[in-house]
């Protein structure tokens, strides 16, 4: 029946809010993120010409920190060993909030 498959609008909203609030807390705009990705692609393409477009960049949030994680696959090596470059952004006390939740 159609109404059993319908995605609840509140679930769509919840996902949207999580994304937008993550960017708000990181003091970063989705546009900044796109620019960062574009720059990284250029740099990475110089060293790994085949991988330039395969980088995955995202903001990860845990209880005590927030980090921007870029994942660059390196297929020169037989097995797909990732080069993982993480840069910590300053988050202050902000993301420690979850841990205080009752």
């Amino acid at each position: 029946m159609w109404f059993l498959n319908r995605k609840k609008t509140k679930d769509v909203l919840k996902e949207r809010l999580k994304v937008v609030i993550t960017y708000d807390r990181a003091k970063m705009s989705p546009g900044d993120m796109e620019e960062l990705k574009a720059e990284l692609h250029k740099v990475v393409a110089r060293f790994f010409p085949d991988e330039g477009q395969k980088i995955n960049v995202e903001i990860e949030q845990s209880d005590n920190s927030m980090r921007v994680v870029a994942n660059v696959p390196n297929s020169r090596v037989q097995q797909n060993v990732g080069v993982n470059q993480s840069a910590k952004t300053s988050t202050g006390k902000r993301s420690s909030r979850k841990s205080r939740k009752k």
Partner: peptide, 10 residues
Amino acid sequence: DVLEILGIQL
């Protein structure tokens, strides 16, 4: 949902 997003006590 709201509590999960905002992470403060109700």
